[in-house]
Design a protein around this nucleic acid. Sequence first.
DNA 1: AAATGTGTACTTGTATACATCTATACATTG
DNA 2: CAATGTATAGATGTATACAAGTACACATTT
Lengths: 221, 221
Amino acid sequence: MADTQPRNTGAYLVYSELKRRILSLELKPGERIYEPAMAAALQVSRTPLREAIRRLISESLLEQQATGGVVVPPLDEQVISELYDVRAALESLMAREACARATPADIEELHGILERNAAMVGFAEEAMKYGVTLHAAIARIAGNSWARRFHDQISSQVERYRHFTNNSPDRREEALADHRVLVEAIASKEPDKAAKIAFDHVIAARDETLRAIAGQGLVAE
Amino acid sequence: MADTQPRNTGAYLVYSELKRRILSLELKPGERIYEPAMAAALQVSRTPLREAIRRLISESLLEQQATGGVVVPPLDEQVISELYDVRAALESLMAREACARATPADIEELHGILERNAAMVGFAEEAMKYGVTLHAAIARIAGNSWARRFHDQISSQVERYRHFTNNSPDRREEALADHRVLVEAIASKEPDKAAKIAFDHVIAARDETLRAIAGQGLVAE
DNA sequence: AAATGTGTACTTGTATACATCTATACATTG
DNA sequence: CAATGTATAGATGTATACAAGTACACATTT
């Protein structure tokens, strides 16, 4: 995620594979990683495996214990709330900056995504996909690489919690409405308004997610 | 920076030393790092050195080239502007959250820091130190570990540019005034106001820094 | 029986050896 | 002479061997 140009090295493949397993919860929260066993399972030596592990640690997708072991970080309601708050701040900033930089072509693109988003509001997976696409487009337009980078890290973290959330049709309609007014604010170059809409939009998503999790409970550690 | 508990390993020492050299510009922007030479200079093998390098890469304190080499990232006016913008978003969020969580004792602490800040407004180094202390206290009170973490990373990045900035007495007075109203907003639990003050405060610092750099120019790459 | 010591199995951390890849200089060719 | 091919020195990437540290079980002692 930090590399702009992912190189074709073994360590990178191991990193990708481990990341995939962590985000899919195939590697369970709380589970410990033993280097010799994992290296054997992935058919590489400990050297590239360690490199991948260290990188995942610095992205907080793995956790180094004080004693020396490495574990998959447990899930935590407090943390998911923090993640959404930071995401709100970042998307708010990007919406603000998109106002200053959006070209007519950019705004046309946003409207296009919005239409497809609207068409797919009946389908959970597709609607979600276009929501992500919209945010990605705004991030690109905003052109702040550090904001994007942090946003990507947050998204990875949140991914682990997505398995516990069920976005309702009502919520999707709400989100679509938010997206409409957000794009409108960007199109009419109202940075303060765009920033506030983006912020509140993410906070709403946070509260929805917290409700869903509170109902279900997180996995035992 | 990602490790909560820095362990006493050789790789960590190398990481710290390299980070210090990068932030102090002892390692010059654009300079390439050769593993064998650096390992010999630091009297360790390439293994812990590589671990340190990889970690610095994922913090963007080093840069992996597509071809395979590693260099100290060049300084860039565009980037410093982005960094301040993200910092503004994060400090704004933390100010907002501090409103919700600050206890009377916390507010007393903030006032104490403010007083010492005021007393030192005549001295560049000391005033800066209390400014940092104030922000750190707010970050602690806000209690959002991800916001803090990203904020720390941003601060490290900005550190490399600080060598080119000269904060004037006027600017210090302005900053102190901003800090006063910020603490006041937190004390009276006005999240929107606190968030806006923090945001604008950092944006002002950004513009001041950009002016200073524009006057001086960044090092050649 | 509880607490403490101790040994052993096993894990992590580091060094070194080896393989692969990159860049530069030089030769060759059009 | 420009452009391309090639050889070679040196870098990065990976595997393996070794050292140091940790945890768990079991024995010993009070």
